[in-house]
């Protein structure tokens, strides 16, 4: 029996499967993210980790099964709102020409985020916790390293105060020190509210540090 809607997990997917031309990438997969969960997603390259994150936020449609948000299926027209709540952070987040500041404000162009973030110093505070000074805000996005791009993507997502973060190898281009900062910021963020994170990683040590709750291993699922 399904739990009452108000106690439902934030994000659930039952029996979902995705298919490419030559067969199933993965199927019969269950995902359950409740408040406080720090779920990890592992598996070798090419097992469809990014595809699963994309499916959970609705950038791809599962070939079977459905994704539910707080117990409800997501209606077509509510998809942008849903994605602003269940936010997928690409491994190499999209950067527009302009400064870091302008990139952090990019989501404000979209109606669903209107009036969300302001220049109240939250961005600067987050950045300083990730080892970046205030000057970083004025840097051109075109000169950022891969790791700096990932930091911009993460901060941009955090500023929108989503309920779920779907992080695609968020520390892939970062050194050990920056990786530790990112882990700390994200884990504290989860504990600060009705929130959950699903984190993909190649690094077993990181998986051990981050995980509290579900673990999905695509390497053994197929």
């Amino acid at each position: 029996m399904a739990p009452p809607v108000d106690q439902a997990p934030i994000l659930t997917a039952e029996n979902i499967g995705c298919r490419l031309d030559n067969g199933w990438i993965w199927r019969e997969l269950d995902v359950n993210l409740a408040a406080g969960d720090r779920a990890v997603l592992t598996g070798p390259s090419g097992t469809g980790k990014s595809l699963l994150l994309r499916t959970l936020c609705g950038l791809d449609c599962p070939d079977e099964g459905r994704v539910h948000h707080r117990g409800h299926p997501v209606l077509d027209q509510d998809r942008p709102r849903f994605r602003a709540r269940v936010m997928y952070v690409q491994q190499q987040p999209v950067l527009i020409p302009g400064t870091v500041q302008e990139n952090l404000e990019l989501p404000l162009r979209f109606d669903i985020n209107a009036g969300r973030i302001t220049g109240d110093g939250t961005a600067a505070a987050l950045l300083s916790r990730l080892g970046k000074s205030v000057e970083f805000l004025g840097q051109r996005a075109s000169v950022l390293s891969g790791g700096e791009g990932q930091i911009v993507g993460l901060v941009r997502a955090l500023l929108l105060e989503p309920e779920v973060l779907l992080l695609d190898e968020p520390t892939a281009h970062l050194d050990a020190e920056a990786t530790e900062c990112v882990e700390k910021v994200v884990l504290e963020w989860v504990d600060a509210g009705d929130r959950a994170v699903l984190w993909t990683s190649h690094d077993q040590a990181q998986v051990q540090r981050v995980r509290r709750g579900p673990s999905i291993d695509l390497g053994s699922a197929s």
Binding site: R54, C57, L59, P80, R81, R83, A84, M87, Y88, V89, Q90, P93, V94, I96, L106, P107, R109, F110, D111, I112, N113, R156, A157, L160
Partner: peptide
């Protein structure tokens, strides 16, 4: 880029 916008809550038109 387009999917990055969508992931940030953009509608398809945006």
């Amino acid at each position: 880029r387009v999917e990055g916008f969508l992931a940030l809550g953009a509608t398809r038109w945006e």
